[in-house]
């Protein structure tokens, strides 16, 4: 009750008028964090026209142009081709995608949401900007390697949710696991780069060898000492419970994604995070 008149709502987008599919798509492009990967890092970069270098332990990937230019972007794609890219990780003409495109998370996105995203992308000004080739070692520099990876490590499937739990929990699960793809950074990977699902969000090592924090509700290693409101405030402003402000890749996630969401969606994310099993950090590998 003492928290009754939080003015934080002021920061929210003017009540998401989810009227047209295009507006809904714009919102989902934020919730999906597409902008940070698909926009080059130069100051004059056009949003979503591609070109950002994404470092990984396997090489450097360059995110493609996803504006509706017919030659250099995705302007010629049908709805079915768009759905298959996200659901199956395969593009037009049987082009198998590398998981640097987080389709292992996006495979859970609903048809309606994907078509809204497509409607929004297709409403943008087409930008002519040819894609850059990925820089990969010879043994990965073929789409066969991506196909083999899919065979070993990829499970396609829509989000089904848990009918035992309420709508808010399910919304949070959908945002965290699929659209928001938090696990792509916070869940550890095995030697082949597959996510270790039973260690969901228990902290990982980033491409640069730095630790990405455990965000399960473990009291010491994770965020178990944060209350729900502190998590919501973090997702909105980037402020940690002690008044420090987050940096690095997470600052970008907050700017492009979570600060743009409705308070209800941030509440759902916080609810879901606190419902996870509290896992301790992994022991550092003996070397």
């Amino acid at each position: 009750m003492r928290r009754a008149c939080l003015p934080l709502l002021l920061f929210a987008l003017p009540a998401i008028a989810q009227v047209t599919p295009i507006q809904r798509g714009a919102y989902l492009v934020h919730a999906g964090g597409c902008i940070s990967c698909h926009t080059a890092e130069t100051d004059d970069a056009v949003p979503l026209a591609g070109g950002r270098a994404l470092e990984s332990p396997f090489g450097t990937f360059y995110a493609p142009n996803i504006t509706p230019d017919r030659e250099t972007g995705i302007g010629g794609w049908t709805d079915e081709e768009f759905l298959t890219a996200f659901w199956e990780g395969v593009g037009p003409g049987g082009k198998y995608y590398y998981p640097a495109f987080p389709y292992p998370s996006y495979t859970g996105i609903t048809r309606a949401d994907l078509l809204a995203i497509k409607a929004y992308l297709f409403s943008l000004e087409p930008v002519r900007q040819p894609n850059r080739e990925h820089e990969l070692p010879w043994y990965l520099d073929t789409r066969l390697a991506a196909a083999a990876w899919q065979l070993l490590k990829f499970d396609a499937g829509r989000f089904t949710g848990d009918p035992e739990l309420d709508e808010e929990w399910n919304r949070g699960a959908y945002l965290v696991r699929h659209l928001g793809h938090c696990g792509e950074c916070h869940t550890p990977r095995d030697a082949l780069g597959g996510l270790i699902r039973d260690r969901e969000l228990a902290g990982a090592v980033g491409p640069d060898g730095k630790r990405i924090p455990n965000i399960t509700p473990h009291p010491e290693d994770g965020i178990g000492s944060w209350d729900r409101q502190e998590i919501e405030l973090f997702l909105e402003l980037g402020m940690l419970p002690d008044g420090d402000f987050v940096g690095g890749a997470m600052a970008e996630v907050i700017d492009d994604n979570t600060s743009q969401l409705t308070p209800g969606d941030r509440r759902a994310i916080a609810r879901y995070l606190l419902s996870l099993p509290a896992l301790p950090d992994a022991e550092p590998p003996a070397d």
Binding site: G203, G206, K210, R211, I212, P213, N214, E220, D221, G222, L237, G238, L240, D244, F245, V246, G247, G248, A249, M250, A251, E252, I254, D255
Partner: peptide, 17 residues
């Protein structure tokens, strides 16, 4: 945003616990 903006570009990422 001014704190976050500077930490994003100029402070090394780390686990805060």
């Amino acid at each position: 945003d001014a704190c976050k903006g500077c930490h994003e570009k100029f402070r090394e990422e780390h686990d805060h616990d």
